[in-house]
Design a protein around this nucleic acid. Structure first.
Lengths: 108, 108
DNA sequence: CATTTTAGTTACTTTTAGGTTACTACTTTT
DNA sequence: AAAAGTAGTAACCTAAAAGTAACTAAAATG
């Protein structure tokens, strides 16, 4: 989601600027179950390429939704977790999840 | 939003397939205040081109979120309104709206 | 000394979304 | 006879998002 609809002060669109895009919600939703390593996320979401995963994680970090912990180990270990801001999306995800379950997943 | 993450049964991503994209939430959110004509929507969201507006409305209609009424008049009159399914997104929008207000619009 | 392991990066290509401009249909109004 | 009004469509173009494949660092393991 670009920022050209910033001129429209739509609070819903504002939120989508943070969690819009093909993968962010999936990543964030997975992180609601706790801290995860890069590789764990990649395995859990096999259809995302590592390049794109890296990009999305960077953006989520830049936007303050997730926190990145790097351990100075070899081989490297990196863990991602939700920040308070990320956790504050909780209710949003809950409603989206409910809707998706009721109207999409349990429909087909 | 494409459907390549359909394989992942993420209820949140499922919902985004319906309301993801740059404009859909803005359109739907506007329609929560009642039936609107094509031109009214276009005026209200001036940064969207008419081509894209048409496209988005078609997709929303295809997905069963909005209903299109065409009056056989000249000049033409077309009205769009939320279907029951569209209205059922109410809670989702409410939470997204809250989050956007608290964390984006009132922050800057 | 070759291999494995993890979390990436780089360069390049493809796909998708969105945008621009010009055009149409049909009636009413001037 | 010309212009205005509405809701589009068609052809074309651009930018952004996503994908692919090959590569890297540095230590540990066999």
């Amino acid at each position: 989601m670009t920022n050209s609809n910033e001129d429209i002060k739509c609070p819903v669109a504002s939120t989508l600027k943070f969690i819009g895009g093909k993968w962010k919600t999936v990543i964030l939703y997975y992180l609601t179950s706790g801290k995860k390593r890069f590789g764990e996320i990649a395995v859990r979401i096999p259809t995302i390429s590592r390049k794109v995963l890296t990009q999305q994680l960077k953006e989520l970090e830049r936007d303050g939704l997730i926190f990145k912990e790097q351990y100075k180990e070899i081989p490297p270990r990196v863990e991602y977790s939700l920040t308070d801001l990320g956790k504050s999306l909780n209710l949003v995800f809950k409603e989206m999840s409910n809707w998706g379950l009721e109207n999409v997943l349990n429909k087909k």
